[in-house]
Design a protein around this nucleic acid. Structure first.
Lengths: 181, 181, 181, 181
DNA sequence: ACTCACGGGACATCCCGTTTTT
DNA sequence: AAAAACGGGATGTCCCGTGAGT
C-alpha cells in the first residue's frame, strides 16, 4: 500500500506521482487511497518516516557486533550505503527529502540525525584515542554526512545507484584515513 | 530577463515557478516571455547553460595565478564554493540539475565535467609526485565532487548556504590531507 | 441523533454539512448514520418535518388561552418568533427550506401552511368585526407571513437572531395597526 | 459573460452552478472563464456588485421625478420590486446573498444599504410632517426592508417571481397606511 | 446495530502554450 | 514585438453511498 507509493515516489518524484498513479498501481481507486491517507502529503510523510525508521534498527544490529566506536561509525555508513542501493522505501525517503520544497507539510529535518549520531560515535573514539588529533568530531561527522549524501546522490543520478556500494567504500577509505588516529 | 528566471528557479524550483511568475517579476506578460524562449524548458536550459559557463572562466583565473596542479584543484573548488554561495544563476543551475527529472528536455550531464577536470589535475599532480601513493586520481576526483556537492546541498537546505564557504574549507582540509603526498 | 443533524444544518447549511460531520458529532461512524437514515436527503426531510411539527402544538397552546381570532393570530406569531430565536430544529428547518434547491427530494411547500392558518383566523376576525374594512384576510395573511419571514431572516443574517423577538414586535405593531379595525 | 453567470446563479444557485456550466453556456472553456475571473468566488462577487450598482441609478431616476420624501421611498420600492421581477443580475445578486455562507469571500453587508436609505427618507418625511407620529423612521425602515425581502423571496419560491409586483403593492399598501401621517 | 474499506464521480484550480489582435 | 483571450488537460480533494464483515 505505502510500499507502492514509495516505489513510485522513488522512481518519479513527488510531483510526477499522481494519487491516481498510486491507486492504479495498487489496484484501487483514488477514493480508496484517500481513505487511508487523508492527503497526498500524508503519504509522502509516511514514506519519509518509514525511511527514518530504518536507522535505529540498523544501529542496533551493528552495535550487537561489538566494534569500537569508530568502526561502528564506519560499519553503519557501509551498511547504510547498501540499504540505499536496495531498499525502495529508503530511496523514496531520500528523494522526497530532496523535493521537500514541493511538499507543503514539514518533514523531519534531514541530515542532522546522522550528524548527531556520528558526532557522538567520534567523540567516543576520541576518548579511546582512535581519532586523529587534528580532527574535531563534529566537523568530521559533517563531512562524512556530506560525502555520503553526495556519493549516494551522484550514484543515483548517473548510474541508478548501481555503483553506490563501491563508490562509497572508495570515498570512505579516503576520509577515514584522515579521521583515524 | 533570464536573470529573473534564475532567481525564481533558485528560490522556488522548476515546477513551482510558472511562466507567469517570471513574466510578472520582469514586468511583462506571458506572451512576451514566450517570444524570447519558445518554451519553459528552454528557459531552464538557458539557465543551466549559464551556470556551466562560469567554470571555464574561473579555471582561467585560477590558472593565471600559477599554482601547482594540486593547488589549482583546491583553489578551483574553494572559489566555486564561494560562487555557489553568492551567484543566483549558479544556484539556480544547481537546483535545476537536482530537479532534472521534472524537466522534459535533456540537460548537460552533471558532475562529469568537474570530475574530468579534477581527474586531469590530479593526474598532473601524480606526475610531479604531489599525490599520495594510495590514491588514484579518478577516485579522488569522484570523492571530491561528491563531498563538494554534498556540502553545498546540505548548506543550502539547512542554512540557506550561509555557511557554505566555512563548511567546504573544513571538509576539503580532511580530504586533501589524504590526497596529498 | 437527529437533533445533532439539525444543529449542524442550522449552523453550516445542507451542502456544508457532510454525513461524516454528523456522524463524528454524534460519536458514530458514517455507516451507523446510514442505518438510521437511508440518505442524506432523508435526514434533511426529517429535520424539516420536525420543524413543521412545532406549529400545531403551538396553536393548541395559544388557543387554550382563549383569545379572539385576531389576537390568536398575533400571539401565534409572537410565540413563533420566540421559537425561531431559540429552537435549533426550527432554525434548521427554516434554513433547509431556504436551501431547498440543493436538496434533491421534495420538501413540504413552505409558507402556505402559515398563510392558510392566518387567512382562516383573519376571516374569523372579519366576521366579528375585528378586521379593518380595507383589508382582505388573504392579503393581510400573505403580508404577515412575508414580514415575519423577512424579519426572521434578516435578524439571522445580521445579528445571529439575537434581536428577532424585539424586531418582530416592532414590525407587527405596524402591521396590526393597519389590519385591526 | 458575467450576464450568463448571473442567469445561472439565479436559476441554480452558487453551489449547483459549476464553472464548466458557465463556460459551456457562454461557449467558452473553463480555462477561458478563469482568464477573466480568477476564481468562482470572484464571479459571484462581481455579480453581487453588479446587483448593488442598480440602486443608485434607480434612486437618481426616482429623485428626478420630484416626489416628496415619503413618496420617493414608496416609488423606490415599487420600482425595485419591478426590477427584482425582471432583471436576472438583480435576482442573482439576491440569491447569492442568501447563499453567502457557501461563498468563502466576504460580500457587502446586505439590507443595511436599503435600511439606511429608507431611514433617511423617512426622517425627511418626519420633518415635513408626513410621518405617523407613533412611528420612528428606523423601525419603519427596517420593517419595510423585511417585508420587501420576504415578499420577494416568497414570490420567488412559490411563483418564480411572477406575482412579485402585485404582492408587493398589496403589502406596501398595508404598511404605508400605518407609516403615513 | 455498527465498523471499515472502498468505488465512483464531480469540481475548482492551475498552468502551459497557441491564436488573435494591436 | 507585445498584450489579451482562449484551449486543453491534468490533478488534488471531497463526499455520498455500498457492501463485506463483526
Amino acid at each position: 500500500v505505502l510500499h507502492t507509493a514509495a516505489a513510485l515516489f522513488a522512481a518519479r518524484g513527488y510531483r510526477d506521482t499522481s494519487v491516481k498513479d498510486v491507486a492504479d498501481e495498487v489496484g484501487m481507486t483514488k477514493g480508496a487511497v484517500y481513505h487511508h491517507f487523508p492527503t497526498k502529503e500524508a503519504l509522502a510523510i509516511a514514506v519519509v518516516e518509514a525511511h527514518y525508521a530504518h536507522w535505529p534498527v540498523l544501529l542496533e544490529e551493528v552495535r550487537a557486533e561489538g566494534f569500537s566506536a569508530i568502526d561502528t561509525a564506519m560499519k553503519m555508513l557501509d551498511r547504510a550505503a547498501d540499504v540505499f542501493g536496495s531498499d525502495p522505501v529508503v530511496q523514496a525517503g531520500a528523494r522526497l527529502q530532496l523535493e521537500r520544497s514541493l511538499i507543503g507539510a514539514p518533514l523531519p529535518t534531514p541530515y542532522t540525525g546522522w550528524t548527531d549520531l556520528l558526532t557522538q560515535l567520534l567523540t567516543e573514539a576520541r576518548i579511546v584515542g582512535d581519532l586523529h588529533e587534528d580532527v574535531t568530531p563534529e566537523q568530521a561527522a559533517q563531512t562524512l554526512v556530506a560525502t555520503f549524501f553526495g556519493v549516494q546522490h551522484i550514484s543515483d543520478t548517473l548510474h541508478a545507484r548501481a555503483d553506490i556500494a563501491v563508490r562509497w567504500r572508495e570515498a570512505r577509505a579516503l576520509l577515514f584515513r584522515s579521521i583515524r588516529a
